[in-house]
């Protein structure tokens, strides 16, 4: 019967409340002293930028192609350099092969779920102008231009190789413009020009519109050769 409390003879020593309290207080003081001991302040170090810096890419000037003696090879090289603009997301996003634009550098489907409509400016009940206006609007980050709309379906570029795009823009039946007009469109059109001034955190197209136009002009002047 060992578990029975024995009576009287072998009484356990009993602690009073005070020592327990004292021990607890001592433990708290010790822990606080360790935690609150004077320490050097953490050094400020900069956080990584929440948005990657926008990379400004340059175009090679027309003069850089002068060393290519063969005019056909030069024409091809000029177009391939201009292709860095043509195939840039700022241009491709509004040259979709479906009725729906894409957006961002990742060229993901546009949200909201808009469609080109009869004139490229959106469906009559959800026009592009529901959100897009004459200028980029910084408070909401929504880009804008007076001519904001999709390229006609005949000028769909997404999913095509640079060679296919090249033949397409030279084909008046699909491009609905001759070479003069094509050059004018690429060199002067303000919606094309938006690609270099996209606002917000959008990466602009490489170079400038003038440099791009010079490449296109030199390409046309050298016989407008297309990649395979």
């Amino acid at each position: 019967m060992r578990w029975r409390r024995s009576s009287g003879l072998s009484r356990r020593r009993r602690f009073g409340c005070l020592p327990i309290l004292a021990l607890t207080v001592a433990a708290i003081v010790l822990v606080s002293a360790i935690v609150l001991r004077p320490q050097p302040l953490p050094q400020a170090h900069s956080l990584p930028a929440s948005h990657p810096r926008i990379e400004i890419a340059h175009l090679r000037p027309v003069a850089a192609f002068a060393s290519i003696a063969d005019p056909q090879a030069r024409s091809l090289a000029l177009f391939e350099e201009a292709g860095r603009v043509i195939q840039h997301p700022r241009c491709m996003n509004c040259h979709p092969r479906t009725d729906r634009p894409t957006q961002t550098d990742a060229m993901r489907p546009h949200t909201p779920w808009v469609a080109r409509g009869p004139d490229g400016g959106g469906e009559p009940t959800l026009r592009c102008s529901t959100c897009h206006h004459d200028e980029n609007f910084e408070p909401s980050g929504v880009p804008g231009n007076p001519k904001w709309k999709l390229a006609p379906i005949g000028m769909a570029w997404q999913g095509k190789t640079l060679g296919e795009i090249c033949r397409q823009i030279l084909d008046p039946a699909r491009a609905h413009m001759g070479r003069e007009e094509l050059l004018h469109h690429l060199a002067e059109d303000e919606l094309v020009g938006w690609a270099w001034h996209p606002g917000g955190e959008r990466t602009p197209a490489p170079g400038t519109q003038a440099e791009f136009a010079a490449l296109i002009k030199a390409w046309l002047d050298t016989g407008a050769k297309c990649p395979a």
């Binding site: 949200t111 909201p112 026009r127 102008s129 529901t130 959100c131 206006h133 004459d134 200028e135 609007f137 408070p139 909401s140 980050g141 929504v142």
Partner: peptide, 26 residues
């Protein structure tokens, strides 16, 4: 506030527009 949800839609000259993405001056 970024023209994604439509909660701010008002009519501007009869057209539905997102007021979060429309400048006062416009």
């Amino acid at each position: 506030g970024v023209a994604q949800c439509g909660a701010c839609t008002v009519h501007v000259d009869g057209q539905p527009m997102r007021s979060c993405s429309l400048a006062l001056e416009a």
